[in-house]
Design a protein around this nucleic acid. Sequence first.
DNA 1: ACCTGAACACCGTTCAAGT
DNA 2: ACCTGAACACCGTTCAAGT
Lengths: 215, 215
Amino acid sequence: MAAEGLGKVTMRRLAKELGTGPASLYVYVAGTTELHAAILDELLGEVEVPASADVRCEDDEEDEEDAAGWERRLIGPLGSYTLLLFRYPGLARSALVARPSGPHYLDLIERVLALLAEGGVAPDRAAWGVDLLLQHATATAAEQTDRDESPVADEEWQAVRRAVHGVDPGRHPHIHVASSRLLSGTPDARFTWAFRALLHGIKHTPVPSDDPSHD
Amino acid sequence: MAAEGLGKVTMRRLAKELGTGPASLYVYVAGTTELHAAILDELLGEVEVPASADVRCEDDEEDEEDAAGWERRLIGPLGSYTLLLFRYPGLARSALVARPSGPHYLDLIERVLALLAEGGVAPDRAAWGVDLLLQHATATAAEQTDRDESPVADEEWQAVRRAVHGVDPGRHPHIHVASSRLLSGTPDARFTWAFRALLHGIKHTPVPSDDPSHD
DNA sequence: ACCTGAACACCGTTCAAGT
DNA sequence: ACCTGAACACCGTTCAAGT
């Protein structure tokens, strides 16, 4: 269906690919956002979400070994999702604006919720946390893909580096002393760290109240 | 300079506003992303970043009271930044793609770094954390502003609600049992919680190593 | 009834021509 | 030299007209 649209998926481009006018697509989808959502869910279905064996270690509290394993298992589906969005520039941006709700996206949510439960995260925190995790994955992908898209990206990145390194020590003392730290780390190392920080925060931050008045 | 461009800031619109052709803008800026970056930094300058009195309580470890106060102080500049992006749809999306590096953005980073240091966050974690915090603020704003932009937003949100509530309990048991929790909470409550989770995670997640080989 | 050509209202960017 | 009109190559969406 959309296996060929590796680049920027657009109404007109897709219509041309199918040898027709752009108006024809509106018979099947309501607009661009719906098209993108459909494609994303289709692609999610093709991704082999690592169906990690359902080994459940029901110890009261997980030890250090288990905590690391839990994190690694969780980074599986979330990493796959991020890499998927990386491959299709523009789709990440769409996913950020219009939260998908297709069946395969629900599979992803289900998987993450299951793993969070395995890790001993309280249900209410897990429910809010899954959103935070997926938003972070989407935002990271949107950031990176669009950066690669333009050839000016490197130049702009250099501008950031120059701005940080050439900062006035009087006005920005903290930036000055942290300049190399601010720019350090590979994208992958940063993603992994951010992911672990999110997990830690989600697990240990209580949701405001059990207020069931909403909804 | 750009005080009137409350809506979608675009090359052609701005050119029309100034009573000239779109080509003229290219004398002053290199392209759309640079224009957006300039506007964002300009707007950041107008925002009164809450210049909280430099009360430094140099106790060895902060007690519960202090921890809450620290979080509240940090949410000041980050909240202002988020609200600013809320007011200018499209600017948040730009900021996500092209990280700003203007002087006022550096002020914001400086402020956040200072507050993180006040809160006893290790310098290397603070350096990576400030990026995570600002990315979250930007992503949240991008998400929301674009949602408001389109009138189909409500309908689409209803689709998500229906998808979550009407889920097959066999295929998605965790979603089924968590359905109301997944949709609960005001945007503000969620933002505050996510923010606190981020802070907690940043403070307690060690950066991979002091590897100074990079850069 | 179902599909679509052509038009409308936008974009960003470039470049040759004007002052 | 500096600015810009007009053109180029795109968008999404609509709607009247065709089959």
